[in-house]
Simulated assay, not measured.
Amino acid sequence: MESFGIYVHIPFCRRKCFYCDFPSYAGAESWMSRYREALCREIAAQGSRCLGTARTVYIGGGTPTALAADDLLAVICALCESFRLTGEEEFTVEANPGTVDAKLLERLREAGVNRLSFGVQSFSDALLSAIGRIHTAREAEDAVRMAQKAGFRVSLDLMYGLPGQALADLKDSVARAAALGIGHISIYGLAVEDGTPFACMEEAGRLHLPTDDECGDMYDYITAELPHLGYRRYEISNYAKAGEESRHNLAYWQDVPYIGLGAAAHSYWHGRRMENEKGLCRYIACIEAGLSAAREEAPCSRENHIEEFAFLALRTADGIDKKRFRGTFASDVHEVYGEVIALLQAAGLVEETAVSIRLTEQGMKFGNRVFEAFLLERDET
């Protein structure tokens, strides 16, 4: 029986962060109960016709812990019942430190959740305020300690390249994260996305970001310091102590199928990619009418599949597994990418081992250049 992952989207937040372009809504509390009911109906429908074994479950957002505790627990209960979860799965819930307390964490742990991913972003109160976060640095530390006491594996997100951020700020945040003894740290560079408050501020000349050189210094610090602290870089933006890697995210990068549930959630199943209705109202209306909220994306050609396989695998430290590539596409990776691999090796961006093609440290730094090279030319006639 096929194994797969489950992703559940909770599109609510207490307040939208200034950099966020994810499909989520602040001030939509009146919709939460109807959304929970619709989501549980979709979960039941998908679980009833899904053969195979769920290996990972990830509830993301938005902010799942912005839901009322009873609503969130109802979603978790529906998942456990509909997909016949055994308790052996990696079961992650994203959380904002400003939306949890000891009682909620205790209930989540009792319900079968075993991993929490906290969006912290920085341990500077000034920076947290500048990017629109609702919690303080102290609240973040307290939330992590409560989660550890409750028995969770804990992951923590940080960001660099934030407006007004200096290298000293980042060093302090990394040190405070490591001092908490967590097993997993993700660090992302700020990208100013269209439609966000930061994009409007940038257009008005009011967004003062670190220079490219300053961001480069931050990147270099991260990639040197986290391994020194015992966190292995297993993906471009993700670092973990031994055995603490996110199994759910690794499955994405390893071409494992997954089911997406909730508004705007994506699925990858038997080579087909589906996307649920993005809009909250339209998603709920579809489910309440007994209709599927999923819409098939453009069919994935063999070339598309090869490109995605390569891009996602190259994000990881292990890179493209040559045996898995041949097993998936009935072609040797060199038959498809031989010239590209040779050019990138000469540039010091990829290296080849007996089992894989993978990015070098320099390749990790300039990943977009490598990914662009792995695009396949198509005959447009």
Rank of each mutant, 00 (worst) to 15 (best):
A126V: 12
A126R: 15
L127R: 00
L127I: 15
L128Y: 05
G132F: 03
H135K: 09
A137S: 15
A140H: 04
E141T: 03
E141Y: 01
D142H: 08
A143K: 07
R145H: 13
A147T: 09
A150N: 09
G151K: 14
G151W: 11
R153H: 10
R153L: 12
V154I: 15
S155F: 02
L156T: 11
L156A: 12
L162P: 08
P163W: 12
P163R: 12
G164Q: 07
G164M: 08
L167R: 10
L167C: 10
L167A: 10
D169S: 10
K171C: 15
D172R: 13
S173M: 09
A177E: 07
A177G: 08
A178Y: 01
A178K: 05
A179L: 05
A179I: 07
G181W: 06
H184I: 07
H184A: 13
S186L: 02
G189E: 15
L190W: 12
A191G: 03
V192S: 14
E193C: 06
D194G: 10
D194C: 00
G195M: 02
C200M: 04
M201F: 08
M201I: 00
E203G: 09
L209C: 11
P210W: 08
T211C: 01
D212V: 14
D213N: 08
G216P: 03
G216R: 11
D217I: 01
M218W: 04
M218P: 00
Y219P: 00
T223R: 05
L226D: 00
R233I: 03
R233N: 13
R233V: 01
Y234T: 07
E235C: 09
I236A: 02
N238K: 04
Y239E: 06
A240G: 08
K241C: 10
K241G: 12
K241M: 13
A242Q: 12
E244I: 00
E245Q: 13
E245Y: 03
H248K: 10
N249R: 11
L250P: 01
Q254H: 14
